[in-house]
Nucleic acid binder design. Structure first.
Lengths: 244, 244
DNA sequence: CAGTGGTCTAGACCACTGG
DNA sequence: CAGTGGTCTAGACCACTGG
């Protein structure tokens, strides 16, 4: 995947994203016209359109046209950092560190992280923005004893996952996520710049390394008006053995 | 009407599944050979292979070949009916039919269901209970033209999925689900027996048959105090190095 | 190097919509 | 009906692997 070769598709996809911005809420020009305008074969164009449709940016209807979606949705098939997820969606991610502090695990956190109560944790609170507008309020708890020693202030700069993976060589492997609906407190609503008591999608994430060791618990409050969670599921094949 | 047109892809995919059985654990013949054997263009074959790869049945490596996966690795979450899901949680499911009516698709529904506005739909509203306590308020839209004719009153009794699958022989295959946070109206809250303006998890589900035909759109409001959504995700095998 | 999958093309025809 | 997206083709060339 890490090739420097400029696929036509990548450049084309960018051009189409711009076009989508311009045609917000409306219809895109026909495929034959677009393929001519961007000097690519129609099939090449169509691959990009399909990808953008899968990302939720477009809707296509045979015989009718290609329409810009009102609300883009997030694909949640892979464990992605906030930054990766927003970029995938064509938004520019940024962060504002609200606080960094050391504390001992309380009963609830200890149970989630499979630790002894009182075990040392690092708490990182951040406001996560997309295109400079608040998207989520995130609190991350890192298990100090399962990480190399480092200066907490390093968390102010750059990506947390980058720090964990590239600097510490940790293999982030999987996460268990739970999604709930909740209502924001006045303070939370103020930080997210929405009216008090607005609804919010609460995502709790337990992050594990390749060895199955839990290193992080994160609790994120997403703005309900800007974020949805997408899950695609399959029916169990009825021919499969062991089916009830 | 139900599309009788046999896409080459559908037949081809079936043939490939058989081939995969035979080559269990091994490598598939090269694409150029397969496209000749099945008398399709290589691009057509490649579309099928890509779909099978997305289903986890195959793994392709440029320059190396196409391999049969040991086992569908990340076993996706399974598409379950409300009843199946509640039973899995150890709760006893039940339902109360609130209304059944025929109506034409409005613009939003038509777009979701890939229909012409005004196309005939059947709307079924149900209160779903678990252990005799309200759990969700569900509205299902069925596409009449994609289903056999039947008396809507049949929906009062028994499981919807059972009706679709066992009586009509429909193969429910997959669903796209989107999860959002919202706030209940007074009426909704009353039905769910929670205080007005309580938070709620809104799950929208688009259900497809094996042929990729959309037959149902469902919108369910779950009580936030009784229901959470769980998703386990894996990190992409080898993340792109330049990725931040 | 030969062989593999990955990308892209120019064109044909089909299915569906009512822009 | 003209116009749209959907499918499929036959072929070219590229990127990568070591069957």
């Amino acid at each position: 995947m890490a090739s420097e070769r400029a696929l036509k598709r990548q450049q084309l996809k960018q051009q189409l994203q711009d076009l989508i911005q311009q045609h917000a809420g409306g219809r895109l020009p026909p495929e034959r016209e677009l393929s001519e305008r961007f000097a690519v074969a129609r099939e090449t164009l169509r691959r990009c359109l399909r990808e953008l449709e899968e990302d939720g940016l477009l809707q296509r209807r045979q015989g009718a046209g290609t329409f810009v979606s009102g609300q883009p949705v997030v694909k949640q098939l892979q464990l992605m950092s906030f930054s990766e997820e927003m970029r995938e969606r064509g938004l520019i991610p940024s962060s504002e560190v609200l606080s960094i502090k050391s504390l001992g695990a309380n009963a609830k956190l200890a149970s989630k992280l499979k630790l002894t109560p009182g075990a040392p944790l690092l708490e990182l609170r951040r406001l996560r923005l997309a295109d400079d507008e608040p998207m989520a309020l995130e609190t991350v708890y890192l298990v100090r004893d399962r990480l190399p020693a480092f200066d907490p202030e390093e968390l102010r700069e750059g990506s947390l996952y980058e720090l964990l993976m590239q600097r510490f060589g940790l293999q982030i492997r999987s996460a268990q996520q739970q999604v709930q609906a909740t209502v924001l407190t006045e303070e939370e609503a103020e930080a997210l710049e929405v009216p008090p008591f607005s609804p919010s999608l609460l995502v709790e994430r337990l992050v594990m390394t390749g060895g199955g060791e839990i290193i992080e618990f994160a609790r994120s409050l997403y703005r309900a008006d800007r974020y949805r969670f997408e899950v695609n599921v399959m029916r169990a094949p009825s021919s499969a053995p062991g089916e009830a």
